[in-house]
Amino acid sequence: MLSGGFRDACAAAGAQRLQVNISDAAVAGAMRISEFDPPIDAVVSIWADDPTDVLDLLDVRVGAMAAWQVDERTPLHPALPADGSRIDALANVAFLRRPVDLPRADWLRIWLDDHTRVAIETQATFGYVQNIVERALTRDAPVVDAIVEELFAMDAVSDVHAFYGSGGDQQELERRMTRMLESVARFGAHQNLDVVPTSRYDFEVGPR
């Protein structure tokens, strides 16, 4: 998926931009939470007017695939190279599922309006993308309600203080962790989720 030939084929199929996140050795020490079986080992994001042909290209290259159309929001938008080089970061990709007893409108309000500030203030992120799932694009795709990506410095792979930005202060770390846990519990993101630590690569592959 990182080869020039694949990127050229995606451009010919209508892709304007690709983002490839791979769970690899560089982030192997980071926390992973898996509900999917088998667990996710790569996430490919496609920007295209019609992604059908690009999805067909992916389908023949992977063992199993699920795809969703999303509405993208970027509370923290870092300036990143799109030349295919590895972004110097731990890129955590989380797949969220809405609790059945929480109406969608309330779930979105708590997550987008209330939790966003908490997430930014309690973690040392320099990039934060929220993707609201609108519909499945592949047959039998599992139910997922949102896909979130957060970018951390590489130190966060093995240093919880670097992850939360607590500067080595244990009391501050505990305060941030408690505030974060209380916030995610309000919309069910403390359970029934997948968190995939990845390395991220960005490509501009076609005209926008």
Rank of each mutant, 00 (worst) to 15 (best):
V100L: 13
F152W: 07
L57P: 03
G63P: 03
V62M: 12
E204C: 06
V143K: 15
Q130N: 08
I33W: 04
V62N: 04
V143C: 13
R175K: 10
T178M: 08
P197F: 01
D106L: 14
M177Q: 13
Y201H: 11
I46Q: 11
F6M: 05
S183L: 05
D155W: 04
G206C: 03
I87V: 12
A9G: 04
H190E: 13
L96R: 06
A189Q: 06
P75T: 07
M180Y: 15
R109E: 07
A12D: 12
I110M: 04
V143E: 15
D140I: 08
W111P: 07
E204W: 04
F187C: 09
V148E: 13
G14V: 05
S166Q: 05
D101R: 11
G5R: 15
D49F: 14
V148G: 05
M65H: 00
R117P: 04
V184K: 03
R135G: 03
T52H: 15
R86C: 09
S199Q: 09
T138E: 00
E72V: 15
Q191F: 03
D140N: 11
I22Q: 14
P51L: 05
P39K: 10
D194L: 05
A64N: 14
E204I: 12
E35P: 01
W68I: 03
F203D: 02
I132V: 15
V144D: 06
I40N: 09
C10I: 02
M31Q: 13
L181A: 14
G14M: 08
I147T: 08
A162H: 02
A105I: 09
D53V: 01
R109W: 03
F187V: 04
P99M: 04
N131C: 13
V60M: 10
A185E: 10
V157F: 01
A15T: 06
A79N: 14
L57A: 10
R175Q: 11
V20P: 04
P38K: 05
Y164P: 02
L80M: 09
G165V: 08
V62A: 11
Q130F: 00
T178G: 08
A185H: 07
R186N: 07
A82R: 12
D8L: 13
S85E: 13
R73V: 11
D140T: 08
A42P: 09
F95D: 02
